[in-house]
Structure formats: C-alpha cells, structure tokens
C-alpha cells in the first residue's frame, strides 16, 4: 500500500495545522477542512425495492427518498442528490470497502457505483453566523424552518457548485465542493466571515 503521508488534502498548503493555534473565543464563524471523507456516488432506481435493499445490505444505510434529506447510520450517511442519485459518505478509507461491497451487491442490476472520494473535499462552517455567511453566496432559504438539521441541497455557493448539509444545531454546515475549488472557496468564506470574526480549526 502507498505511504499515507504522501496523501495531500486540497487545503494542505494553507497550513491549517499551524493556524489552529489562533484564538477561537468570540469568533462568530469557525472554518475547518474535513478532508479525505469517503464519498461514493450511487445511481439507481428509487422505485426498485431490490436496489434499495442492496444498498442497505452493502452500506448499512437506508437511502433517503425525500428530496433534500439525508439518512444516517453512523458512521455512514446517505445524502439525496436527485431522483436517481445519492451520495454515500463514510470515514476516510471506507471507500475501499464500500465500493466493492456495493458493486457486488448490485450484481447485474442497472445501477452505478462511482468513487468520488478524491474529487471532493469538505469545508465545515460552524458558528452563530453560519447561516448569514452562507447567505452571502447562496440563494437557498437556510432558515431553520426551511433547512433543518439533516437537510442537504445541491446548489451554488459563491459561484461554485456545492452540496450543503446541515449537521448540527451549532449550526454546522458541511460544504462539499470539487477539490479544485477548495482554495478559492476557503478564501471566499474567510473574507465573507470577516464581519463576524473568524477562527480556523483543524479536524
């Protein structure tokens, strides 16, 4: 197996581990990168009970059928992306287990399993002003009545495509973006967060 130290996160050049020493108290926004999360894209028929049970068997999670929602069976989360598309996320490295398990489970069924772990990274935006910050670059209604904990949405953020997922009441949004946009998004978020006070954190 390849040496893990050779693996580099999309924001490694930002030196976040050194920046983490900065003061956190009073910051309205905390930004962090959550790199290397396993991400497996699934395509299949929501109306096909066999497909749904195959996913349950291989990944241990129910696929959410309600638009813009997620299902979680720790440590695996399934996010609704479209009427025939989902994203399964799990801790780093799990893609090596999930991808073959799902493929085997589908057999000859017309469904697709695509490993997108390397394509993306996650930036977590947390703190009292997290909604205000995202509203500067996103047209979605993020009010708790419209976007409760557990909600997810594919949308635009600061003119880049983004998958938003509200994971807790802090509130903490996990923003999944294409890896190449990570540096741009990080700079954008840090600049837009300036009026609230911003702290950086390593995971």
């Amino acid at each position: 197996m390849v040496e893990p130290y050779l693996r580099q996160s999309a924001l490694v050049h930002r030196g976040l581990s050194r920046a983490a020493a900065g003061a956190m108290s009073g910051a309205g926004i905390v930004l962090s990168e959550r790199p290397f999360r396993a991400m497996v894209n699934l395509r299949g028929e929501a109306s096909d009970a066999g497909f749904l049970s195959a996913v349950r068997a291989a990944a241990g999670v129910e696929l959410p059928l309600q638009p813009n929602t997620t299902q979680r069976a720790a440590p695996v989360t399934a996010l609704w992306l479209g009427p025939d598309e989902w994203l399964i996320t799990a801790p780093a490295g799990e893609e090596r287990v999930l991808v073959p398990a799902l493929r085997a489970s589908f057999g000859e069924r017309h469904a697709a399993v695509i490993d997108l772990t390397e394509s993306r990274t996650v930036i977590a935006v947390s703190g009292a002003h997290a909604r205000d910050l995202l509203a500067k670059g996103c047209t979605l209604d993020l009010h708790p009545r419209a976007f409760p904990v557990g909600a997810c949405a594919q949308t635009g953020l600061a003119r880049a495509g983004a998958l938003l997922h509200l994971v807790d009441e802090a509130p903490t949004f996990e923003i999944t973006i294409l890896r190449s946009f990570a540096d741009y998004m990080w700079v954008w978020l840090a600049d837009a967060a300036q009026e609230y006070g911003v702290a950086l954190r390593t995971e």
Partner: peptide
C-alpha cells in the same frame, strides 16, 4: 480581484 471568478487549482 481573485474572488471575481472561481480559481481552480491542480494538484
């Protein structure tokens, strides 16, 4: 400036 349009970076 640099935030006028997204900048994509390669590895």
């Amino acid at each position: 400036g640099d935030l006028l349009d997204p900048i994509r970076r390669t590895p």
